[in-house]
Structure formats: C-alpha cells, structure tokens
Design a protein around this nucleic acid. Structure first.
Length: 517
RNA sequence: GGGCUCGUAGCUCAGUCUGGUUAGAGCACCGGCCUUUUAAGCCGGGAGUCGGGGGUUCAAAUCCCCUCGAGCCCGCCA
C-alpha cells in the first residue's frame, strides 16, 4: 500500500469515522518558501487525496503563520529592516515593494507553485484568525491553566526552566505594533495587564483584544483543537522528542481536552551533492519554481510520491535527472498498459498520486533525454516534432494534449541544458565550418558520407553501419572518422550518437559542411 | 546528554508496519546481436554472509535485545 494510503487508514481508525477529515500544512512566510516547504504541503495534500481515494471527504488547509514575530533580517533584505523586528510578518513592508507585506511577498510565489503542481488547499492566515478572535476561548483556557502549561513544558525542557511569571501569550502592542511587551498579571477573568517598551500599558480585555497571540508551543495545539485538525506533517526539527509537535500533542489533550492528532515527521529535502539544511541565510535555497522550470509538475510530484516522508529526498539536477524522467515515463506506460504485473496496485497509485492532468490513455512520451539533444539543434517546435516522429519517439497522430506535452518538455529540456546539464552533453552546432586539421582519410571519409546521404535516406542503423564500412574501406580507424564528424559539426571530439545526429540535422547543411574540407 | 532516520548487488534504492516459494528494480558492468553503435538500440548474463551478534519461531532482510557505522534533529528557520 502507498504510504499516503497507510496514513489515511491510520487517520480513519484512530480518529474514527468523520464527515470530513482536516489535513493541515503550515509555513511561516518569513523568507522564501523553498522545496522543503513544498514537502510540507504535498505530504499533506497526498494524504488528503488518499482519504478521498478511499471514499472519504477531506480538506487540505494551509496555514500561513503570518502573525509570527519578525525575528531577524534575512539575507538580501536591507539591514535597515532591523527597525521592524518585533512586528508580525504581515505588518512588515515588502522590501521589493511588490506586495502588501513582507509575508505576502513570500506567500504568493509559493501559492503559484503549489497550484502549478496541482494543489489548491484552503489558505488560511493566522493574522486574520486572530483578528477575528477565533482563538479567544483557547487564550482564556491557556491563561487559566498557565501553571499546568509551565509544568508540562518544563518537563520537556533541558536547560533553563520557565518561571511562574511566564505567560502563554504575547501581546502585539496596539500603539507601536511590536511584541516588546511584558505581561504583568492576569486577573483570572478577562483582564490581562501588560506594559510595552514603548511606554504604553493597559489592562486588556482578552475578549476584545485581538492583538493577543498564543505563543508557538501553545498556538499550534490550540489551532489543532479549534480547526479540528486530524493530520499534520512537520519537519524533523519539530518532530524531535520534546519538540513542539511532542509538547503540542500533550497540550491538546491536557489543556484543550481533545485527542491527539495524527502527525508525521518528514525528512529534509536537498539537492543531490548539496549538504546541510537549506536556509535563506546560507543562500542555498531551492524554490519549487526552480525545479518547475526544468521539470513537469507531475514528475516533480512523482519524486515526492515515491519517497516516503521518513526518507531524505535528494533531488538530482545532473544526469540522474534524466533517469528520474525515464522512470516516470515507465511508470506511466505501466499504468496505461494491460499487462498483468505484480504490485500493479502500487504502480498505479504512484501514477495516480502524481498525475494531475487526468489523462485517459497513454499520452505521447517524448524522451527528455533525446529532447535534451534536439533542443540544442533547433528551437523550432515543428521541426522538433518532425524529428521526434521520424526517430519513432512519438506516434504519427498527435492529440492537442500530446502536442502540449511535447512543447512543454522541449521548453523544459532547453532550460535544463542551459541551467544544469553537464558540459559533456552540451554542444553548439557551428554555423560556419571551423578551422580544423583533418587527415586526408578523414576528409575523404566525410566526402563519401556526404555522397551517401545526399543520394538516399537511410535509417539510423543503416547509416551507422555504412559509416563503419566507409571507415574500413578507406581505411581509417572508425574512431577517427567519428571524431572528424563531431569536429566539423560541433567542434568537439565526441557528441550525440553520430548516425541519428546526422539524420536529425538538415541534409543540405551536413552535405555542404562535410564537403567543405 | 536526549531523540530520529538510515545501513540490502559496484552505485541509488524497493521489500521491513501485516514473518513464509530460488531477496527484487534501475543505473553501471560483462557478453551476444552478418568483424559494427561515443550521449537514443535489442537480447542475455554475473553478481548480495540483507552492517555485526544473540534471541523468538516450523520459518527472520522482516519481530525482540545488544552492538558497530553513517547522517540528521533538539526550546518558532520544513
């Protein structure tokens, strides 16, 4: 069974049958939302999908923690932003001025990427929820049970313990907007007294003061309780024992009197070859949009679908990238084939959970590997399609969706070659004959090949065989002849398989080039 | 110090939850394909004490205990 379905089963059995299951993901938009945050979302989305797949209703909610405190100025943001520290992220201005807030600046591109990858969760904002007073009751409960909270949190704390003047809330000062406030007392009813560094002080009525926020460790379980969350994944930094997920599970039971949620710790995502955690300050963040610029969304999904959350995911952008694509195509082929295979169900789920287009039959599969060669020859999509057909990579008759996919892949392949392909497979077709020293035999060989291809159309295999024949007859080492071919076409000693490569190029061009030596 | 994950073929991994035929896949490698495939061919092949030790069982990669090694997390950076 697929891991997402296993979680779905667990949710149903442990939380009982419900009308609708709530699966939550959540991110603090205090910097670029990278591919690790993407795992947060898709690990939620897939389980919500699996629940539906099993015939239950489910909802994916994505919480934007935009009411969190602006803690530190990230890299790439002016140092002057230190003046905003203490404000909630939703009140800090966008450094680039393109969004209504600092938080929005990072939220929007992520939401777009999620949509591109077939995810449209219900986006919620913590700032709005607090403004609307959704957590008012939980704030009161937390204040009432403050001592129990302290006890509970202290039992998990290693170093310094919380003292009795700790309060489970922080207050964003209504005057200066910052949370540089200190709660001085709580009257046991609704009065919360505090003073701010800016000089402001008051006794707020927690029924009305919508700028009182629960502290993170309490905020999270409060949210689970209030929104009826059944399932939420979290990164390993939260998932460690004594971490916020752990204490959250205790708090939701002991403070808010609700059963624990189904949680899952997921491993980090990184680029193959990179080490360490991604962080904006290190400048090693990979955005979902970065991957989507070279990979189709269903293939991106596939990588997460096939990797259990507990496994670290290393995304390869080097040659292994092509293997992932090949693998996806194979899974797709299997899905649409009638062939009886073992683990049919598993393969089918891999594809169903990845595919976002709802294909009814096997779509054209222009090999990404082959495209990475073709796009270096031409950017003309009609010619690319022609070549793909000629070389038997795609069917003769193409539907609109087939054509769309070919166009998309060609574009992505071109991006991949430009951005990530190793030099070894990059080449440039030379417009003019390069100056190269060739032996008499090499020149003669090229001439014979040009006569040959001008006369007739040969298949790749035929041409390949003839090149060997020509070399043997001259005689010249085949290797030398191949070298000559690559030198005069792309100025390198080696290149794409010669016969197919020649067949893919314009015949007149090749003939003329081979004869110019 | 506490905890998590991982250790299965040269490499990347599946299989471990629900123990059961000769432990699988991809890549790599080797061989063959009218003496012939540079990055896109087809067919075939070899290969693993399942980190080590012990236990439970008719039966262990799978469950339990111990141990070694690698990586990672630990008070709001997934």
């Amino acid at each position: 069974m697929h891991w997402a379905s296993t979680f779905a089963e667990r949710i149903i059995s442990e939380r009982g049958e419900k009308k609708e299951y709530v699966c939550e993901s959540g991110v603090t938009p205090s910097g670029f939302c990278h591919i690790g945050h993407f795992r947060e979302a898709i690990t939620t989305n897939l389980v919500a999908y699996a629940l539906k797949d099993m015939g239950f209703k489910s909802r994916h909610i994505h919480m934007w923690d935009d009411y969190d405190r602006f803690r530190k100025v990230p890299a790439n943001v002016p140092a002057s932003y230190s003046e905003y520290i203490g404000l909630p992220d939703c009140k800090v201005p966008d450094p680039d001025g393109c969004h209504s807030s600092f938080a929005d600046h990072f939220m929007e591109p992520f939401q777009i990427s999620l949509a591109d990858a077939g995810m449209k969760p219900d986006f919620l904002r913590a700032s709005e929820q607090y403004k609307n007073g959704i957590y008012r009751d939980n704030i009161k409960i937390s204040l009432d049970k403050k001592d129990r909270l302290i006890e509970l949190l202290n039992s998990q704390r290693g170093g310094e313990k919380l003292s009795l003047d700790w309060y489970p809330v922080s207050v964003y000062c209504p005057k200066c907007g910052k949370d540089q406030t200190k709660v001085t007392s709580y009257d046991g009813e609704y009065g919360l007294s505090y003073s701010c560094k800016c000089g402001f002080e008051e006794t707020a009525d927690i029924r009305k003061a919508n700028y009182v926020k629960l502290k993170w460790r309490v905020d999270w379980p409060s949210r689970w309780a209030e929104l009826g969350v059944d399932y939420e994944p979290y990164g390993k930094d939260h998932g460690t024992q004594g971490g916020s997920a752990d204490t959250g599970q205790k708090i939701i039971q002991e403070i808010f009197n609700k059963p624990p949620i189904i949680g899952v710790t997921y491993e980090f995502v990184s680029l193959k070859g990179a080490s360490g955690k991604m962080s904006s300050s290190k400048g090693n963040v990979v955005l979902p949009s970065d991957i989507l610029s070279v990979m189709e969304p269903d293939v991106l999904r596939y990588m997460f679908v096939k990797t259990k959350p507990s496994k670290e995911l290393k995304i390869a952008l080097d040659l292994d990238f092509l293997n992932v694509y090949d693998e996806f195509d194979r899974v797709e082929t299997t899905y649409f084939s009638e062939e009886e295979i073992e683990k049919r169900e598993k393969y089918d789920k891999l594809y169903e959970f990845s595919n976002i287009w709802g294909y009814k039959s096997l779509p054209a599969q222009p090999s990404f590997r082959f495209l990475s060669v073709i796009v270096q020859i031409t950017s003309d999509i009609d010619r690319i399609v022609k070549i793909l057909k000629k070389e038997g990579h795609i069917p003769k008759d193409l539907s609109e969706t087939d054509l769309e996919r070919i166009k998309t892949r060609a574009k992505l392949a071109a991006n991949w070659v430009k951005l990530y392909a190793p030099d070894m497979i990059k080449f440039e077709l030379l417009d003019t004959p390069p100056e190269v020293e060739l032996t008499v035999e090499q020149k003669e060989g090229l001439k014979v090949i040009s006569d040959l291809i001008q006369g007739e159309d040969l298949t790749d295999v035929e041409l390949h065989n003839r090149i060997y024949e020509i070399a043997t007859n001259l005689p010249i080492e085949p290797k030398k002849l191949f070298e000559a071919i690559y030198r005069v076409l792309i100025g390198k000693e080696s290149g794409p398989k010669a016969a197919a490569f020649i067949n893919v190029l314009e015949k007149d061009f090749v003939v003329k080039r081979f004869r110019s030596y």
